[in-house]
């Protein structure tokens, strides 16, 4: 062990960072692959069917088989498409989805880049993903793809605002843009996490997150039954797979961020109770992953349950309901902060 640590320390900084990136990306990619499997299984059982169970034991080989299939498929370039943009679009989509993890703390100090403006960086990264979608829709030169891109752009931009305001609430309460400090600010057990004082923001943040990732019931950008597959209707093979990966990576990111900012991240839910010592052996990252999984499950549950909103109804929900509520609650949170109401503001 000492030898390994010594070896690691002797490496140049750039190599050390690359190693860290690999350590984050590896499990993340596996999680994305098995999230698709989990989706098919969970929704399968919700719909009284079994889901994939043919490839490997209990179907565990399914994501790998899917990946292999997509890799060997031809990437069809539509005749009238702008080739360069058409191929850049999926990269623009997955880049931000992965880059956002750079500032994500997995435990105290366990973070790739411990920057002070972490929250701002996250906000920037989650919104930049929309370029991939717009460019994909534009470059395909198809009416369906174009409609999907326009819908998606409008939707992401609107929900970005509600999401940003929700984060402002977190910022007000935590008094820091650093994600690690935001989690530390929630220490003290279940009732000290920010979900309680920021309950409306918590709900809005997660729903906006669902809208931001274009998942049901806000999946008008893909809109299976209306515009077929929306912006990626002309994509096939790996180019499509990259969009797919980006979507699932984004879902995991949103789930993890919700857990981090509103449910105390890696903190134990039993802090401050008599059960604290019983669960002291559980590493913080387990709590974080467990909380993240709850939200990841919610994504799937939504998809199996809700009909799809119409495009203008999504806009109305975003602009006329979510944004006013967030603005009001920021004022409320500010007032609670100033007048020291509740245990969160010491």
């Amino acid at each position: 062990m000492d030898f390994l640590i010594g070896l690691y320390d002797s490496l140049p900084v750039a190599i050390q960072i690359i190693l860290k990136i690999v350590v984050i990306m590896g499990p993340l990619m596996v999680l994305v692959a098995y999230y698709t499997y989990a989706e098919r299984k969970v929704i399968g059982y919700m719909q009284v069917r079994i889901g994939p169970n043919r490839v490997g034991p209990k179907g565990w080989g399914q994501p790998i088989a899917d990946a292999v299939k997509l890799m060997f498929k031809e990437i069809v370039l539509p005749t009238h498409a702008d080739k360069t943009l058409f191929l850049i679009a999926p990269l623009l989509s997955i880049g931000p989805a992965l880059a956002a993890w750079a500032v994500f703390p997995f435990d105290t100090g366990l973070v790739l880049a411990d920057i002070n403006a972490g929250l701002l960086y996250l906000l920037a990264m989650t919104s930049i993903g929309v370029y991939g979608v717009i460019i994909a829709g534009w470059a395909s030169n198809s009416k369906y793809a174009f409609l999907g891109a326009i819908r998606c752009a409008a939707q992401i931009v609107s929900y970005e605002i509600a999401m940003g305001f929700a984060l402002v609430g977190v910022l007000v309460v935590a008094g820091s843009l650093n994600l690690g400090q935001i989690v530390e600010g929630q220490s003290g057990g279940f009732w000290n996490w920010y979900w309680l004082p920021l309950l409306p923001l918590f709900v809005i943040y997660f729903i906006s997150g669902v809208a931001e990732t274009n998942r049901a019931p806000f999946d008008v950008a893909e809109g299976e039954s209306e515009i077929v597959a929306g912006f990626h209707v002309d994509y096939s093979g790996m180019a499509f797979a990259v969009f797919f990966l980006a979507e699932y990576a984004n879902m995991i990111l949103i789930s993890a961020l919700t857990a981090l900012m509103f449910l105390g991240g890696w903190l134990s839910p039993f802090q401050g109770t008599f059960m604290e010592s019983w669960f002291a052996w559980v590493p913080g990252i387990i709590w974080l992953v467990a909380k993240t999984f709850v939200f990841m499950f919610l994504f799937l549950w939504f998809r199996a349950t809700f009909p799809r909103y119409r495009y203008d109804q999504i806009m109305r929900l975003g602009w006329k309901i979510f944004i006013p509520i967030t603005i009001v609650w920021i004022v409320v949170a500010g007032a609670m902060q100033v007048y020291d109401i509740g245990p969160w503001y010491q």
């Binding site: 719909q47 009909p307 799809r308």
Partner: peptide, 16 residues
């Protein structure tokens, strides 16, 4: 109809 409007699950219930 439910599938067109985006609710997947009803379809499979109906087929049962």
């Amino acid at each position: 109809h439910a599938l067109d409007v985006g609710a997947m699950t009803v379809f499979l219930y109906a087929f049962r």
